[in-house]
Amino acid sequence: MSDGQRADARRNYRRILAVAVDEVAEHGANASLEQIARVAGVGSATVRRHFPTRRALLEAVSHQRIEDLSERARALSGTGESRSALLEWLNEVVDYSATARGLAAVLVPGGVEVEPAHVNGCAATLEDAAAPLLRDAVRDGAVSPEVTLADLLALIAGIAMATEHYPDPAAQARRLFQLAFTGMGPQH
């Protein structure tokens, strides 16, 4: 294979993955591979060459989203009001968690236990990236010092699970997360 062909294959891979991230966010784990190929401007054989199974594609999508959220946390760190920066990032995690509906069921088929190392690895990646956001919010008195990122991620996971069957799970998850984050008292 020539360097030009390898570069073309890398571009196709990146384009397919970017489209797949959007399609899975919109349609869940049942996103159409044919639609992904169409939007990416490649044939379905090209999609299957890069991602031989739906599971392989969904694993890549999940990994990419975790990387994107980690990068976003790093980008928001130190940019203005600490509570707002933390809340903005957490809302993006809520959106991802709510729109990733069905991913867990496909990536971890029924009856198969989730490998703790994988779940812990994803959580650890997010926690490492977002630690400065939480540290700044605690330092500024915007968040209680007892709050951990593990607490916040567990809360988001629970909200995502509780809202997955709503007609608009992302909107409901955002509403519930805002309620949890701001409290039930009237806002002044």
Rank of each mutant, 00 (worst) to 15 (best):
M1Y: 11
D3V: 07
Q5N: 05
D8P: 01
Y13D: 09
R14K: 14
R15T: 15
I16D: 02
I16V: 04
L17A: 06
L17H: 08
L17E: 06
L17P: 05
V21E: 12
D22S: 10
V24M: 00
V24Y: 00
A29H: 01
N30Y: 11
N30T: 13
N30I: 13
N30A: 15
L33Q: 13
E34D: 15
E34R: 15
Q35R: 15
A37T: 01
G41W: 04
G43F: 11
T46L: 00
R48E: 08
P52Q: 03
P52F: 08
P52G: 00
R55P: 05
L58Q: 06
A60Q: 06
Q64W: 06
I66D: 08
L69C: 04
E71K: 14
E71F: 08
A73M: 00
R74S: 10
A75V: 11
G78R: 02
T79N: 14
G80D: 04
G80M: 06
S82V: 04
S84P: 02
L86H: 02
L86R: 08
L87C: 10
E88K: 10
E88H: 12
L90H: 08
N91M: 13
T99P: 00
T99L: 12
R101K: 13
L107N: 01
P109A: 02
E113I: 07
E113A: 15
V114E: 14
P116S: 11
P116K: 06
P116R: 09
A117H: 10
N120V: 03
A123W: 09
A123L: 13
E127Q: 13
A131Y: 10
P132R: 08
R135M: 07
D136G: 05
R139W: 07
G141H: 04
V143P: 03
S144Q: 12
V147T: 08
L149H: 09
L149P: 04
L152S: 01
L153G: 07
L153F: 09
L155G: 08
I156G: 02
I156T: 08
A157K: 11
I159G: 04
A160M: 01
A160E: 00
M161Q: 15
A162S: 13
T163W: 00
H165P: 02
D168V: 10
D168A: 12
Q178S: 11
M184W: 11
P186Y: 09
